[in-house]
């Protein structure tokens, strides 16, 4: 495998809601900052991967417009995931393994304040089996809390608006760009079954396997940042990853929260606050999909 590191991370200001700008305008400053921190420009990027959700924007092909923040003319090599930005980071890591490009940009954006997110999520990913029941993130959260014997939550997470960007670089290029690259020692993502009724909701098998494949337990972890929407999700994740402590986010900027957690874990290594960190992202009902990244100095 090729050595690949996160060399820069820039999130938008936390807790934004009711933003008036377009998603593209929201992305401009974070992409600018991620590049400016390491003194490169858009022309230095060999591959770009974006992440967003057309269901949040309420418009088909809304994701195409965010490309306007990347300087995509003349045409660039790019891709998009309809997932949290942490999965865009994963695709950028895969792309850098090809060996022909050395620098990649991954970013994500989400504006949650223009729709009822509980309604949107209830039909976004399962318009078939569970849609007639209008199962939403709070219903799922309560089901899972009960499965682990915790007090069921009474409120859905505070959804906020956000954007974030990370820059990845391979080998010597990473060493040129920053003193302490956050080397990706392991990264993996797994998915549990689509239908919650066939899962044991008291644990997260996909998080466990992703953590194992990423090598979380190979050495002590200085700090871990987990995408947990509810306290019980934090407990399930720490159990699945074999951790005793992890930081969560106070709010849930959909599509961006995972990239923020993974980016913050990488940033801890870049800044010298940690020598080994773990970042986690989650998507889907009851922690259905999980991504784990381990960073080392």
């Amino acid at each position: 495998m090729r050595d690949v590191a996160v060399v820069s991370f820039a999130p938008s200001e936390p807790g934004l809601t009711g933003v008036e700008e377009t998603e593209t305008q929201l992305l401009f400053p974070v992409i600018n900052e991620a590049l400016a921190k390491i003194g490169i420009t858009r022309k230095d990027i060999g591959f770009t991967c974006s992440a967003s959700c057309d269901y949040l924007a309420g418009a088909p092909f809304a994701f195409v417009q965010t490309l306007e923040a990347t300087g995509a003319w003349p045409p660039i090599s790019e891709s998009h995931v309809e997932m949290d930005g942490a999965w865009a980071l994963y695709e950028a890591w895969v792309r850098l393994q090809h060996g022909d490009v050395d620098v990649a940009l991954a970013f994500s954006s989400g504006i949650c304040s223009r729709a009822d997110i509980r309604e949107v999520l209830s039909i976004q990913l399962d318009p078939y089996y569970l849609a007639p029941l209008w199962l939403d993130p709070l219903s799922f959260g309560r089901l899972q809390a009960e499965a682990v014997g915790q007090e069921p939550p009474t409120q859905a997470p505070a959804y906020t608006d956000a954007a974030a960007a990370v820059v990845l670089a391979a080998g010597d290029r990473a060493r040129e760009l920053v003193d302490r690259p956050a080397w990706i020692a392991g990264i993996d993502h797994r998915t549990d079954a689509h239908y919650p009724g066939v899962r044991d909701l008291s644990k997260s098998e996909s998080a466990r396997i992703a953590g194992q494949q990423a090598g979380v337990d190979k050495a002590p972890v200085d700090v871990a940042y987990l995408s947990a929407q509810y306290p019980h999700e934090g407990l399930i994740l720490m159990d699945a990853l074999g951790l005793t402590h992890g930081y969560g986010l106070a709010t849930n900027p959909l599509m961006v929260s995972g990239l923020i957690q993974v980016g913050t874990a990488a940033d801890a290594v870049i800044k010298g606050d940690a020598n080994r960190s773990v970042g986690h992202a989650s998507a889907g009902p009851c922690l259905q999909q999980n991504l784990v990244a381990v960073f080392e100095a």
Binding site: V19, E20, Y55, G58, R114, A115, D116, E119, I123
Partner: peptide, 13 residues
């Protein structure tokens, strides 16, 4: 089953 989602249209500055 008829499904509808309501979105607030925000005009940028």
């Amino acid at each position: 089953q008829k499904v509808d989602l309501d979105y607030k249209v925000v005009t940028s500055p």
